[in-house]
Design a protein around this nucleic acid. Structure first.
Lengths: 169, 169
DNA sequence: GTCTATACCCGGATAGAC
DNA sequence: GTCTATCCGGGTATAGAC
């Protein structure tokens, strides 16, 4: 009952902190170990290698996004709001989870689908449009995270325009 | 008149080859130098550091995309086709050019705008929708490059659905 | 399950001779 | 403008003792 997380869980936690705090390059075995108060070689008793840590993080990220989307009220506006908010609150984790090749074997079944379902509901099960819509959200998020919009750009307005086009188009 | 490129130009060329051929990690000073038949320290007589090479590559990429978009026939369908085709033909360079923070000081003036203009034309100068549309294209490309669509997904259809929504929405 | 020690690899960048 | 020599840093991962 005591809230002592096991080592794997702790690895995920400190890895996430390092990633979000100091960027992807900070996610090294040495840093993770150091944050846990142990030495790097000891980590290999708990995870296979660095890649497994990233997989665990991606899994966690996808589960969180999926959970929030599933819990949100239906509709595209709500989807957009929740999706964007999560990404901006967890920029490095979002990047990691979406730009990694995603080995579908090791990812928990259904996690990917649960992130997709709300979108399908909002668009009358139109798979193609759902994918376009997902891509638009992903693109808007990435461009924002990467500082790709011109300085004065009204990003809110771009989201509104996109969502509205997807709904009424 | 002889087609002997100067060193900077040569650096861009071999860097591009390394990047596209072996991925981003292959873009090292040692590799670039080796491809040129010289030693790594010599590169510093021509470029300031590795970052400058990446900037040069980004500049080149943006100029190329902008050029192709400007030369294409007007309309959103054409934009989509050209944009996607360039990205798929130059995946690593596309990634580099779009996911780097883009230091606007050192980038040639107007390069960014020229890539944006065709989109504005196609959408009646609606800036917000143009940005949403750009984001959708970027998102579709990134998801495809990162192998993020499910195995059987019809990516062509997703593009069509997205473009059609953006036009008629 | 943690440690120390270590092997191995890689990278960016500079100094100074030629 | 190129070289050699070198410094400095970093990383993943394993072996074997405790």
């Amino acid at each position: 009952m005591t809230a002592r997380p096991d080592r794997r869980e702790q690895i995920v936690t400190v890895s996430r902190g390092l990633l979000e705090g100091d960027g992807r390059d900070a996610l090294t075995m040495r840093n993770v170990a150091s944050e846990m108060g142990i030495k790097a070689p000891s980590l290999y008793k708990h995870v296979k290698n660095r890649g497994e840590i990233e997989t665990l993080l991606s899994e966690r990220a996808l589960a969180e996004i999926g959970g929030e989307l599933a819990a949100a009220e239906p509709g595209l506006e709500s989807f957009a709001r929740v999706y964007r908010a999560w990404a901006l609150a967890n920029p490095e984790l979002y990047r990691l989870a979406t730009s990694t090749p995603l080995d579908r074997e090791s990812i928990t079944e259904g996690v990917e689908q649960s992130a997709e379902a709300p979108l399908l509901d909002a668009l009358g099960s139109d798979r193609d449009r759902a994918r376009a819509c997902w891509a638009m959200a992903h693109g808007l998020v990435m461009l924002e995270l990467d500082g790709r919009f011109p300085p004065g750009a009204d990003i809110d307005a771009a989201w509104r325009a996109g969502v509205s086009a997807m709904i009424s188009g």
